[in-house]
Design a binder for these strands. Structure first.
Length: 116
DNA sequence: GGTCTGACCGGCG
DNA sequence: ACGCCGGCCAGAC
């Protein structure tokens, strides 16, 4: 059925996003847009953000490793506390200043490039 | 069932 | 450097 397929697709979308996020190595970060591009949604970065919003409570999804295209921690307000995201990154030696990843260029992990 | 909004992004003036 | 706009697609009302 069409409706069932739509639901299935939606589930896969969530799973796909989480799967990619889980592949981000410790100490590295990626962006919403990069994940979207990898999943074939060129401008679907907002969808990824939407999926991340639903990732609360999902085990093994390092949401703190997903930042925006500038290296800014735009999702920090959605964690337990606004500092949780920075704290977790710092624990991986990712230095944050003014809500922004230092040396973002070298910390960036591009799924398209790394996974194909 | 139209309209608004979003943990975004790139382009343009 | 900066603000604005359109695009993407699903959910809430």
């Amino acid at each position: 059925m069409a409706n069932r397929e739509t639901n299935k697709k939606r589930e896969n979308f969530f799973e796909d996003v989480y799967a990619v996020v889980q592949l981000i190595p410790r100490g590295r970060v990626t962006s919403y847009g990069a994940i979207a591009a990898y999943l074939g949604m060129k401008s679907g970065a907002r969808m990824v953000g939407w999926a991340m919003n639903a990732s609360h409570g999902v085990r093994g999804v390092p949401a703190h490793r997903v930042v925006n295209s500038q290296g800014l921690l735009t999702g920090r307000h959605h964690f337990e506390t606004p500092e949780t995201m920075e704290k977790r990154l710092l624990a991986e030696r990712v230095v944050i200043r003014k809500h922004q990843v230092i040396d973002f260029k070298n910390r960036f992990w591009d799924p398209l490039k790394e996974l194909g």
